[in-house]
């Protein structure tokens, strides 16, 4: 194809997206669109998969059967979300093996929030409430993104996600109304998860390199700063309601803006964690790669069994 032809195809492509048409797997698309989507969608899938680890840590130690079945169901949902997203990414021609390989070799990133440790049961509450809360804010606009398979996966994910946040908030509510120690535990979890949750919505707009292109492709419908403000405005009253204090002395309602002003985010910490120096980066990768390697004989055995059963069937047919 000549450069002019590609230019005109690209123009038509951008026009389709501007008209809110969806792009489907076999449609022509610019190489950059394909690559960007493979990158973002697979990172999203990896985040769901690695996201199971901090919470899986507490399943056996949940304080009651009610909490245990809920947490188990939530972690199973994360696995499901990872699978919807891998499946959607594969429609762009990336194989599952490639995607796993990129995660396991550290070539692909996942959300930096999962590189923090889950120290107490209250962390299950804080993660559901804050981390899933921030994720929902990020994901709801993606239900309208331009790539059909991604949008459809996000619709499923968002439908399931609201139970996650509610179960987390319920844990916090219960602890906040409990004994003095339980309340302290809840406050401590909020103190540790608040700032990482704000960072989770991404670098500030002036530092975010992909925003303009992503907005055009509807991979992003609001900027990081807008999403962060939305998250803060929605979460502060929830903390007030259960009598917990947001660990930010600069947090103050701004009548004029109709929003909360908030303090400086420690972006050095964010970039350290992104670069692999967070408290749990090594641990998470070790757990993930270890699970994959230990499962290898099971995958091979299943394949050998399937082939044997197929051969037997063919022999009987002769």
């Amino acid at each position: 194809m000549s450069e002019d032809q590609i230019k005109s195809l690209e123009k038509e492509f951008e026009a389709r997206i501007a008209r809110d048409e969806k792009i489907e797997p076999k449609d022509w698309m610019p190489e950059k669109y394909r690559e960007t989507h493979i990158r973002q969608m697979s990172q999203h899938a990896h985040s769901e998969i690695v996201g199971m680890l901090p919470e899986g840590n507490w399943i056996t130690r949940a304080p009651s059967l009610r909490r245990k079945v809920a947490l188990l169901a939530k972690v199973q949902d994360e696995a499901g979300h990872g699978l919807y997203l891998y499946s959607a990414t594969e429609t762009l021609g990336a194989s599952r093996e490639e995607l796993y390989d990129q995660l396991h070799t550290g070539k692909a990133k996942y959300s930096s929030i999962f590189n923090y440790p889950t120290l107490t049961w209250a962390d299950m509450g804080a993660i559901g409430w804050l981390v899933d809360g921030a994720a929902i804010i990020n994901q709801v606009p993606l239900c309208n993104t331009s790539y059909g398979p991604y949008a459809r996966a996000m619709i499923r994910v968002c439908k399931e996600e609201s139970f996650h946040q509610r179960q987390g908030f319920e844990i916090m509510l219960k602890l906040a109304n409990g004994t003095e120690e339980q309340k302290e535990m809840a406050q401590d979890a909020l103190n540790r998860w608040w700032w990482p949750s704000l960072m989770m919505l991404g670098p500030t707009d002036d530092k975010s390199v992909h925003t303009a292109q992503s907005m055009k492709w509807k991979l992003k419908r609001k900027t990081n700063d807008e999403l962060r403000q939305q998250f803060i405005d929605q979460t502060v009253p929830q903390a007030d309601l259960i009598g917990l204090t947001i660990p930010d002395p600069a947090l103050k309602w701004n009548e004029e803006r109709g929003s909360y002003d908030f303090g400086e985010i420690d972006w050095d910490e964010f970039w350290q964690v992104v670069k692999g120096h967070g408290p749990m980066n090594k641990e998470r990768m070790k757990a993930r790669v270890g699970a994959w390697e230990r499962g290898e004989w099971v995958r091979d055995a299943a394949m050998a069994y399937a082939e044997k059963a197929q051969n037997r069937k063919e022999k009987q047919a002769v």
Partner: peptide, 19 residues
Amino acid sequence: CGSLHAADADMALENARDV
């Protein structure tokens, strides 16, 4: 509704139920 990986059809059905 989507796709998944499985060794054979029976496993695909069971995985589809879970996913």
